[in-house]
Amino acid sequence: MLIIKDLHFGYPRKPLLLENINLELRQGHIYGLLGKNGAGKSTLLKNMIGLADPAKGSCQYNAAPVKGRPVKVLEDIYFIAEELYVPSLTPTQFVANTACFYPKFSQPDFYHYLDVLAVDRNGIMDRQSFGQQKKAMIAFGLATHTDLLLMDEPTNGLDIPSKVQFRKLIASVQTEERCIVISTHQVRDLDSLIDTLLVLHDRQIVVNLSLDDVVERLHFGVYPDTSEMPVLYEEETIRGKAAILANTTGEFSKADVELLFNAIISGNPTLLILLKDIRHEKNI
């Protein structure tokens, strides 16, 4: 679906932000894109939709180059940016002027999503709160039914009930044809939603694994005492020590994505080698 090959990107007169990025996004998956502040997550998403041109390498969507933002590509990718622009129109008026550019847009679905997210379809959008604006644009983005949906920090500004509704909505709209990429800091909001983890660290994709593959090789748990255990990484929590160990018993645990992310960016060498091995095995 979307293939990035040997991509290098840096803003003018600034050091490289992305280096040697190789990535393939497949239909039917929800990718969680994680990284520290300034790691380049938003920039990577912009490269995927042609808002940024790489210094080297390529990005292709269904074999068509994304560079130059061809109409055929834009019709099938929708990007919900972290900072949204909404016009001074109601959602109904906005849809009347904008939906026609997306061939697969569904108006009944749009209004259904607005209702689920509790957005007033007759309220002037730029006069609503940031959270309401975000929800309106999420509803619009989902209703375009593009095969690739890119979301940059979609839960920023949403209240807790809205985050719950958002998770339920994303889970319900996911199909075998669709690919969703969610860039986020708030891992806990979305760890039950994503099935593939992408971690961007030090200008590169250091992890590109399905969570199923991760829990097949790693075990996550909270223990009162880990002194006798072959812990790969651990953190002190209120409930005890949250730890990552190698999965030697074959028992599956629930992946603690936030713990795993912290372990990766801490530069834990053993863990990183293990994750690289998993990736290598899966690629073979």
Binding site: I49, L51, R69, V71, L74, E75, I77, Y78, F79, A81, E83, L84, Y85, T98, F101, Y102
Partner: peptide, 16 residues
């Protein structure tokens, strides 16, 4: 000149 407006404008499926 405004990032959020530029994103909306440039990603709208119409040719340059």
């Amino acid at each position: 000149g405004e990032k959020k407006k530029a994103i909306a404008y440039l990603t709208l499926p119409a040719s340059h």
